[in-house]
């Protein structure tokens, strides 16, 4: 087998494979059953090697032991002068003091530990609002309503990692060697520099990734195995939350981030899905009296419409009626 692909599989398991290499590797894996087998086996070997390092460590105890030494700066000089005057009782007293100070430093250490624990920044954008977040590396994240991102304080050191719940459009600054990874449920989307949209609302049954420019690698886990798919502009990948099925489709990605400017575009979508978007967009609650309406599919566009204008249009297209009281909308 080609040494080159061993190297790529290694990069893949280290999660620092470039988009180009990922494409190369995937093509190779798809070529034959033998390659697939090799891929699985090599990944398994690396996972086993990783598991070798899984054991928990007693870091605090070790530090306490070291600190005993750093606190007793000059042990030799001290003991040579005073040893003679120590009697049994003083030794016991000294021992108690040592134990006491060790437990105090241990306690202080634990306090410090909580302070230096990994710090997450979290940004939540409520229903009915849009928000632009500019990251420390200059990448822009446009957050849709009812969406949340989290990232580590050390975001721009090494791999740039963002956790997403909800929907966001990413415009990523290119940084060689520092892939940008979006985790949404079981799906990880990895790029070097590009723009793409991730829709991963918790109430939806799938995660949708749509690429506007550049290339994007999507990794998702099914049980313990990982799958990789590669997306080009105007391609959309849907991964069902049960992890069983995925679907790749061609879409018009020009409109995919139009929600940023309060344009709403529905492309062959179920009315039930459309209503969920409207709920978020206008912060309203929508209920269906006639369940059959949920399964109607519509394709339509709205540009900065009021909720009434929008509901009028949808009622007309789906041949339904609606009533609206305050924030409650009923469709029948």
């Amino acid at each position: 087998m080609d040494k080159h692909y061993y190297k790529l599989i290694e990069d893949f398991t280290q999660k620092n494979i470039s988009s180009e290499d990922l494409a190369d590797l995937m093509l190779w894996v798809d070529q034959s059953r033998e390659n697939q087998q090799t891929f699985r086996e090599v990944v398994k070997i690396y996972e086993a090697a990783d598991s070798f390092f899984d054991a928990p460590l007693k870091q605090q105890q070790s530090w306490a032991k070291i600190q005993q030494r750093t606190n007793n700066q000059e042990p030799e000089e001290f003991s040579s002068v005073k040893t003679r005057s120590f009697n049994r009782w003083m030794l016991i007293a000294a021992a108690i003091i040592v134990i006491f100070s060790v437990s105090i430093t241990y306690f202080q250490l634990q306090n410090q530990k909580t302070k230096t624990a990994t710090v997450f920044h979290e940004i939540y954008n409520p229903k009915g609002q849009k928000r632009l977040v500019t990251m420390p590396d200059g990448s822009n994240i446009y957050l849709n309503g009812d969406s949340r991102i989290k990232y580590l304080e050390s975001y721009d050191k090494g791999k740039r990692i963002v956790y997403l719940e909800g929907e966001a459009f990413f415009d990523v600054q290119h940084r060689p060697g520092q892939p940008f990874v979006v985790y949404s449920g079981k799906v990880a989307t990895s790029v070097l520099g590009t723009s793409f949209n991730v829709n991963a609302y918790k109430d939806a049954d799938k995660v949708k990734i749509t690429v506007k420019t550049g290339k994007v690698g999507v990794v998702f886990s099914q049980g313990k195995t990982k799958h990789v798919t590669y997306l080009l502009p105007n391609e959309q990948l849907s991964v069902l939350n049960n992890g069983v099925s995925i679907r790749k489709a061609n879409v018009d990605a020009d409109e995919i981030d139009s929600w940023r400017i309060y344009k709403i575009v529905f492309y062959d979508q179920l009315l039930s899905e459309i209503m969920r978007v409207i709920e978020r967009e206008y912060d309203v609650d929508i209920t269906f009296k006639n369940q059959a309406l949920k399964h109607i599919k519509l394709t339509t566009k709205f540009d900065k419409c009021s909720v009434i204008q929008l509901m009028d249009m949808i009622a007309q297209l789906s041949n339904s009626k609606y009533s609206i009281y305050g924030k409650k909308i009923t469709i029948y």
Binding site: E41, A48, A49, S51, K224
Partner: peptide, 19 residues
Amino acid sequence: NPFELMSSRESYKEIIDLI
């Protein structure tokens, strides 16, 4: 064959032994 026992803890252990 450890590869057949997909992802089980034991098969990792076997591979580590082989390492």
